[in-house]
Design a protein around this nucleic acid. Structure first.
Lengths: 247, 247
DNA sequence: CGAACCCTTGACTTAATTCAACAACCGTGG
DNA sequence: CCACGGTTGTTGAATTAAGTCAAGGGTTCG
């Protein structure tokens, strides 16, 4: 199932012609990026609009001491550089987390698709509101929550976003994510992330073995981590945690 | 001078008709908000597009324990809710920092203005890229920088943004900001903010008395705080810190 | 079968918080 | 005019969440 379709359908209903238009984006020429390699570097000029079709990516900035700080996780159906058409240089870099494949959409094709459907323009507007909302939520998460909640919150967000894509089954999803990646995303040390992961395991609110992550009781975890999916701006999660967290 | 004009002119050149169109936005009916009072609350439905015309505002979320976390500072010329037209409920609140006046723009007027000029549509796109860029930079600032740099970075950002509005004179700007506000914006305690402020004062890189803030050597402060204005996406700052930091 | 890479654990250090008290400043009203 | 209460700014001492350093164990993959 095309993840872009799945996500956009969470914002508003799409008819068949809209869905075919979205498929034209995903069917653009693809490029495969190896785990931990860069798709776009900071300062790069941006030509094509890039769309994650498989695997995960991340936005990050490198600190003067060489550490890298992940500021967003990109899942299938997410645009890497929605500002491709306006801005001349990237203010951050994008890398693959695990192996990733992207579609390279020419600006002309993108314009054609958006001009063709009012509904898609609206869905795109929703999507960019959701991006902004996530970035704000990450800001408060990193600024104001202690490590346990900070990590739990990221896991809850991933759970919900993947659920919207139909990629959560039996409370479980596959994550090409190491504890080191999670440390870079939460501004914590890998060893502290490890301790926190064990804390959530000890409460039986997290199973994480290899690439497989299970949240046995997502609503409870969400409650303990102050997670409220409102900021994702998907009507299916509008009722709060208890609406969409279960399958 | 209309701050919206000043800011948009930093993104790209605007002709006189564009500027008159922007004035129509600022000249919309205005509303005055007292210091520390809310303009918009979390969960509110959004009708009008609100634009800061005088004073400062902030976006914030409240934590379960009652603390509030500021996630963005709004200066004159900033839109409070650019997503007014697509999203049904605010995912965060907006309050005044010091007294603030806003213009209330009807959606119809906004559409009229944007439909009338290609240049303004482009400037608006730039502005929203800059908003996103700032939110990402705040994320890394709060996640990955120690308190001294974190606070210095916010001060540098304010300096540059106000400079773009023509509101910095003699390396000095007027800020309706308390150390408590700054603490809420940086995820630190007021007492720690105070200690850090004194640290920068002791290096003579910051004068802050009452509502008046002076950065005697902004380029040096920027360098020490890892501040690079690239993310503001204003060509005048493109050359790095040393291009636009002086007056 | 060895070499990365990732996960895990323990002991010690540190940046920032907490708590508490006090000084300076403000507009307000007696 | 000064007294007043409330907010902001300042300082010190004790505490804590998270970082640092260091070492060992487990996978996976060439």
């Amino acid at each position: 199932m095309n993840p872009l379709r799945a996500k956009f359908a969470c914002y508003l209903p799409l008819d068949q012609s809209d869905q075919r238009l979205l498929d034209r984006l995903s069917d653009a020429p693809q490029r495969r990026i190896q785990a931990r390699h860069d798709l776009i570097r900071e300062g790069d000029p941006v030509r094509w609009l890039k769309l994650v079709v498989d695997g995960w990516g991340c936005r990050y900035k490198v600190m003067p001491d060489g550490r890298r700080q992940i500021v967003a996780l990109l899942l299938p159906g997410d645009f890497c550089n929605p500002d491709a058409l306006t801005v001349e240089a990237m203010d951050h870099a994008i890398a693959a987390v695990g192996d990733m494949t992207c579609a390279l959409v020419e600006p002309d094709l993108f314009d054609t698709v958006t001009l063709a459907s009012q509904a898609l323009r609206r869905a795109l507007a929703f999507d960019s509101c959701a991006m902004l909302g996530m970035q704000r939520e990450w800001t408060v998460n990193l600024a104001a929550r202690p490590a346990r909640q900070r990590i739990g919150h990221v896991l809850c967000e991933l759970y919900h976003r993947l659920d919207a894509l139909g990629m959560v089954a039996d409370r479980t999803f596959v994550a090409p994510l190491t504890q080191i990646d999670l440390a870079e995303a939460t501004g914590l040390t890998p060893v502290h992330v490890n301790r926190v992961v064990q804390y959530w395991r000890s409460l039986d609110l997290l199973h994480w073995h290899g690439r497989t992550i299970t949240l046995p009781d997502a609503p409870l975890l969400a409650q303990q981590c102050d997670f409220d999916p409102l900021y994702l701006h998907m009507p299916r999660f509008a009722g709060g945690v208890h609406g969409g967290a279960r399958r």
